[in-house]
């Protein structure tokens, strides 16, 4: 199995007629993802890459079986757009948009929890189950089907590690980017939990970065519940204190949130630490021997 998405997942693209929505729809279709419908208010009746476009989510779910959505709606309109997805009981929402006001993000995620929609993001690159489907930006060629589950804060870092693993002949079940924060609807811990439950996933790779406490919470979960081998890498070892590096949460304050403090907790939880993608490969090879 994979986690969250597979070849049977039927996807709605919200904001399908925009520049990013259009290009990513093309890439998802090319990868084999079942993109069955798109929504852009005012563009109903048209199509993108053969995918029918509707004005409202209501119309899309009336005509199609849909169990995941990806949203490209810009920040000022994102909250209402996400509410529309959630109101129609679509169980997975991949929210790629960055720069949504934080109060709106908190409302979207909570409303999703109450109504049964899991929100991945915001600001996420999405996820890919190699050989089956992808929802989001993960470049398909960098991945191959296999037995390593990867969760990363950063999208780009999950491409980087995926590419290296694939070139080394190591495949993946699912690769998830949870977003750069500072608020997450779906955390590293949530992904680790699903990978632990997934039969096909044999090794879990956790890619974290300096700042915040999310890796610490994943470490606590690993210590208490995870029996599969976990390999972790925390980037930002060379980062200076007190400067926010690109992700709002990526900042070292005092002794908190450093690569060392996170590595110590993960090591205590039984994870093996790597400092480069090449070391991750070496550790996986060691585990397979």
């Amino acid at each position: 199995m994979t986690i969250l998405i597979n070849k049977d997942t039927k996807v709605l693209v919200q904001g399908i007629t925009g520049r990013s929505g259009r290009l990513q729809t093309e890439n998802m279709l090319a990868y084999g993802t079942q993109v069955v419908a798109g929504v852009t208010p005012g563009k109903g009746g048209t199509s993108v890459q053969g995918v029918p476009v509707y004005n409202y989510v209501k119309e899309a779910v009336a005509s199609h079986d849909i169990n995941a959505a990806i949203s490209f709606v810009p920040p000022p309109f994102a909250k209402d757009a996400c509410f529309e997805i959630i109101d129609h009981k679509i169980p997975l929402l991949v929210l790629t948009t960055e720069g949504i006001p934080e109060n709106d993000v908190l409302e979207i995620i909570q409303y999703g929890r109450l109504k049964g929609t899991r929100v991945l993001g915001p600001g996420t690159a999405g996820l890919i189950s190699p050989g089956e489907a992808k929802i989001g930006a993960h470049p398909g060629r960098m991945y191959t089907k296999g037995e390593v589950g990867i969760v990363s804060k950063s999208g780009a870092l999950s491409y980087e590690v995926g590419k290296n693993l694939t070139e080394a002949g190591i495949g993946q079940t699912t690769v998830v980017g949870v977003g750069g924060g500072p608020i997450w609807g779906f955390t590293q811990k949530d992904a680790v939990e699903l990978f632990q439950q997934d039969d096909e996933t044999k090794i879990i790779v956790l890619l974290g970065e300096i700042g915040g406490s999310m890796e610490d919470e994943a470490a606590a979960y690993i210590k208490a519940h995870v029996t599969k081998p976990v390999i972790a890498m925390i980037v930002g070892r060379a980062a200076p204190e007190g400067k926010s590096l690109g992700h709002a949460g990526a900042i070292i304050e005092g002794s908190k949130g450093t690569a060392e403090s996170k590595a110590a907790l993960l090591t205590a939880a039984g994870a093996k630490m790597a400092t480069t993608p090449q070391e991750i490969i070496a550790l996986i090879k060691e585990l397979r021997m």
Binding site: S154, G155, Y159, G180, V235, R237, A238, A239, G246, T276
Partner: peptide, 27 residues
């Protein structure tokens, strides 16, 4: 990407040098 940017900072340091800056393009 912020994640690859931080990884590169680390790799530059491992290679015995230091970055003059961190610059990530963002959303």
């Amino acid at each position: 990407g912020a994640g690859t940017g931080m990884l590169t900072l680390d790799l530059i340091k491992d290679a015995g040098a230091q970055a003059a800056n961190f610059c990530e393009l963002g959303g």
